[in-house]
């Protein structure tokens, strides 16, 4: 019975994938583009060369970090839309520490470490704001988070065009790039840093263990599934919710820090690259199971990187990957709903 269920579930999920592809194909046809060329291009863009493949991994790092953080807030039953802003604040804090310390005689490794830690703290503080708004202000975390995202964007732009502007003229290309010695060491000739990769993998393992194996994780799940009962069971509910915000902020902040020390080496206006919203999609797609975070985040990163070439080759917008990513989430949720209905009747 159990085994047959598992196969049935797998079948449903495959159906969702097929439907998502089908729908994206329809959109491509409507746009007058050759669908199979487009898919081939995405594949080639993601895995066509070593550089492409390592670029996928470089994008996987912040996405995985963000997803790891979101798994914690989802476990607590919270929709941390503010994760996007938490990534930005992480990047801002990292940039700030790097700017302050770049001209000192401190060893670069220490500066980078301090920068990453500062980023994590920045993300956590921003997440705490959303948590405090919810706990003490009665503001739903979705609205609070969304508002804080706009504030974070404004703050980023203000810093780039104000206090941290390039000498001479401020530009959308961001702040002055840091010296090479302040970058996380990368593989030679590639944009991928083994350090960043390691941090992301450690993060997802930590979150997996936290949610699967610890008392903290179990209590968090109880709070998420039924705060009233959790309270009667003796769990301090609002403190747990607050703490889950902080933990998620730490991971999101780390993602922001990686964007600065491993990818862009400066603060740019779109520093979060939308990984917050993408992370939300990944978390929904994997039904909040930490085990699946790594492969699905990788798949999404591949779609992102693979579609970069589309405008050049096929004159298609690279947002096509977004269409496919969104379709996938919608169809997986839809098919899951259908499955539950059908199974109930059976």
């Amino acid at each position: 019975m159990v085994r047959s269920n598992r196969w049935v579930n797998l079948g449903f999920q495959l159906a969702a994938l097929v439907l998502a592809l089908l729908f994206t194909t329809l959109i491509l046809l409507a746009a007058g583009a050759p669908p199979f060329d487009a898919y081939a291009n995405i594949l080639r863009g993601a895995f066509g060369s070593m550089i492409n493949f390592t670029d996928v991994l470089a994008a996987w790092v912040p996405l995985l970090l963000t997803t790891a953080g979101l798994l914690i807030t989802f476990a607590a039953g919270l929709w941390n839309i503010g994760v996007e802003g938490q990534i930005m604040l992480g990047a801002i804090f990292t940039t700030w520490v790097l700017r302050e310390l770049q001209d000192t005689s401190m060893p670069p490794a220490l500066i980078i470490t301090l920068g990453i830690l500062a980023g994590m703290i920045g993300g956590a503080l921003w997440a705490m704001l959303a948590g405090a708004l919810k706990t003490f202000g009665g503001v739903n975390e979705i609205f609070g988070g969304l508002g804080l995202n706009f504030v974070a964007t404004a703050l980023t732009l203000w810093l780039i065009f104000g206090p941290w502007k390039r000498p001479g003229v401020a530009s959308m290309s961001g702040t002055v790039p840091f010296d090479d010695k302040l970058a996380l060491p990368a593989f030679t000739g590639l944009r991928l840093s083994p350090w960043a990769l390691g941090i992301a993998m450690i993060a997802i393992v930590i979150v997996y263990l936290l949610l699967q194996g610890t008392y903290f994780g179990l209590r968090l799940k109880a709070v998420g599934k039924n705060p009233k009962a959790a309270f009667l069971l003796g769990i301090p509910t609002w403190q747990y919710m607050m703490f889950s915000f902080v933990l998620c902020g730490l991971f999101a902040g780390a993602a922001g820090a990686m964007q600065v020390v491993a990818v862009y080496h400066r603060l740019i206006p779109s520093i979060s690259s939308g990984y917050g919203y993408l992370g939300l999609m990944v978390a929904m797609l994997i039904n909040y199971q930490a085990l699946w975070a790594a492969p699905i985040a990788f798949f999404y990163a591949a779609l992102n990187i693979g579609s970069i070439q589309l405008p050049i080759v096929l004159h298609l917008d690279s947002s096509l990957s977004g269409v496919l990513q969104g379709m996938l989430v919608l169809f997986v949720l839809l098919v899951e709903g259908a499955r539950q209905r059908l199974m109930k009747k059976a």
Partner: peptide, 30 residues
């Protein structure tokens, strides 16, 4: 409480998980 599933128990968690939650905890890992 009177409403068992609304206030007393946590739907989605197993009996084991409930008993673990109700006990004093030792250490970090379950």
């Amino acid at each position: 409480p009177a409403s068992r599933l609304e206030e007393g128990l946590v739907p989605g968690l197993t009996l084991t998980e409930h008993f673990v939650l109700s006990e004093e905890t030792k250490g970090l890992f379950i």
